[in-house]
């Protein structure tokens, strides 16, 4: 679809704005936080501004691509699928964690420069790329896999629709780290497990087919576990998949309390 639209525009020259069905195009400025210890700036962070021509249907990722491909090839960022499911391009756009591939330029006020920063709380490697290892280390700690006992069934593990619905919300997680890196408790010292790890624990704790709930509750019943959640709802606001993250954390808390008393 996009390719067709671009071809049409190229044929019609500069007057495409008047053509029926044409997509409006505008200039947008991106203010990007740059960090490259191998450059002449060393450990210093600098802010670069780039102005590109963008269409009304373009996303922040398209603008970043345009900058990288046409203006400054050294601009570094992660993206894989570019369609909001791989979770590679979470970044802080105009002060909020979003996926660059799911954020339309027209939704983040292109009249003013749009600030783009790496997500907070994780060590920056270069420009918009952060070291995700602390995030995945927490994820691994909660054992994000099915734990069962006894013999393997010879067919599917049957589950009722109601049992499936119980944890449906938390199955949507794409591990983009938008929630964990929006959490002010995680920013402090990075020891907190973070919302994403708890969400993924929730996905198994409330799965009727899984038998590892007690172990996972034990792991999260930690000084740095669910009890560090202050219910600021930053994670719920940041989640590009619309997961009710704070609610999931509270459900894990409740499961721990009913287990303890």
């Amino acid at each position: 679809m996009t390719a067709v639209a671009e071809n049409t525009r190229a044929d019609a020259g500069t007057q495409t704005d008047d053509a029926p069905g044409a997509v409006a195009s505008f200039e947008v400025t991106l203010k990007i936080r740059r960090y490259n210890p191998e450059s002449e700036h060393g450990e210093n962070v600098i802010w670069d501004e780039f102005t590109v021509q963008a269409h009304g249907t373009d996303r922040v990722l398209d603008a970043l691509h345009k900058i990288k491909w046409e203006q400054d090839g050294s601009l570094t960022f992660r993206r894989s699928c570019a369609h909001g499911i791989c979770g590679s391009d979470a970044m802080r756009i105009n002060g909020r964690n979003r996926l660059a591939c799911k954020t339309l330029l027209k939704d983040v006020n292109p009249d003013k420069p749009i600030t783009v920063e790496p997500i907070k709380g994780l060590p920056v490697v270069k420009d918009l790329v952060v070291d995700m290892e602390p995030f995945f280390a927490s994820y691994r700690e909660i054992m994000p896999f099915l734990i069962t006992s006894g013999n393997e069934p010879s067919r599917e593990r049957i589950q009722s629709q109601a049992d499936r619905d119980r944890f449906d919300d938390t199955t949507k997680c794409i591990l983009c780290a938008a929630c964990t890196s929006s959490c002010p408790v995680f920013w402090t010292d990075g020891q907190y497990f973070g919302p994403a790890a708890i969400v993924n624990a929730h996905r198994f704790i409330f799965d009727s087919r899984d038998e590892g709930a007690q172990q996972r509750l034990e792991i999260l019943n930690d000084k740095e576990g669910v009890w560090r959640c202050r219910t600021t709802f930053n994670c719920t606001e940041a989640c590009p998949r619309g997961i009710q993250v704070t609610k999931a954390i509270q459900e894990v808390k409740r499961a721990m309390i009913t287990r303890a008393f």
Binding site: E218, N221, K223, W227, A260
Partner: peptide, 12 residues
């Protein structure tokens, strides 16, 4: 590395 596990019911 997480500095150490601090599991227990204290925070609960």
């Amino acid at each position: 590395a997480r500095r150490k596990t601090t599991r227990g019911n204290y925070e609960l």
